[in-house]
Design a protein around this nucleic acid. Structure first.
Lengths: 146, 146
DNA sequence: GAATAAATTAGGATTGGTTCCTATTGTAGT
DNA sequence: ACTACAATAGGAACCAATCCTAATTTATTC
């Protein structure tokens, strides 16, 4: 669900982030996608609208947005870090073949806990669940090649 | 639980891995630790016994051991990949401050499933659960500095 | 226990994502 | 408009991981 310019302006204001065209473009693009792009993907996409933008700006902006809690960095064993503007509580389902990421919403998964013993050793802040397997496309492709 | 030289020899034989002193040292060291070292950690440690060993050998060996299913690569948002010779089913608990990794054994966590809808789209192979929080040491340190 | 074929190793070169540095530009508040 | 300060562009630097090659070493066969 893509954020509007006005929504972005308000969110940035609330987080005391200066509003620049580059930032706006990066965040707007991230809110419009659900595929968890890499920094490089983001750079290439935003470059179409802002040809002079530098990779540095992309990295700096992603870092600022992350610190502000507007986006999250996702690390699921992919080669490069991926970014997600969906801050609703969710988990992930990753294709081990094409690396596609699918979001998983499930209240039961949000309520997991570790053993009492571990709870005493750690102050638990949260948890993540990552399912992995073959997406429909890759599964079918596999069958075809047998 | 450190593997003995004899055990390693048998395991390598079973997996059709050639047994070399460097490999043996790398795998033996990994089985003796539970802290999920990085490739660099492994390199520095094994270098003490084999000063001429190259980083390349470490990476090549880790890759071979991983392919053979004797170790696993763990990616929990740390800066670098980490390696684990503990192939028993388990999950992880990570300190967000010092990055320490703690193993979690819990049958209930092994039985999670995604929704029926997702099951139709994906062929699920497995899942991982990662808890994060502050370990006892970092929690106490935090209190001290307040 | 040598000979052979194939895999492993060491070392150096290379890659490529990410970070660092700095002058310039742009933003928000006064 | 003016000011203080943060963001940007561009390039240089960094460094874990990969690639390349020749020399060794391993496991197997005779």
């Amino acid at each position: 669900m893509r954020s509007t310019k006005q929504e972005i302006k308000e969110q940035f204001k609330a987080k005391e982030l200066k509003l620049t065209p580059q930032r706006c473009a990066i965040y707007e693009m991230l809110t419009a996608r659900t595929d968890h792009p890499t920094a490089e993907d983001i750079y290439r996409t935003v470059k179409r609208a802002y040809p002079m933008i530098s990779q540095n700006t992309v990295y700096y902006t992603l870092s600022a947005l992350k610190k502000a809690g507007l986006i999250s960095e996702v690390n699921l064993g992919h080669e490069h870090a991926r970014f997600d503007a969906n801050m609703d509580r969710h988990h992930h389902l990753v294709c081990v073949s094409c690396q596609e990421i699918n979001d998983v919403y499930d209240e039961a998964l949000n309520r997991l806990s570790v053993s009492a013993a571990k709870e005493r050793q750690y102050t638990i802040l949260g948890h993540r669940v990552e399912f992995f397997g073959y997406c429909k496309r890759c599964r079918d492709k596999g069958k075809a090649s047998l």
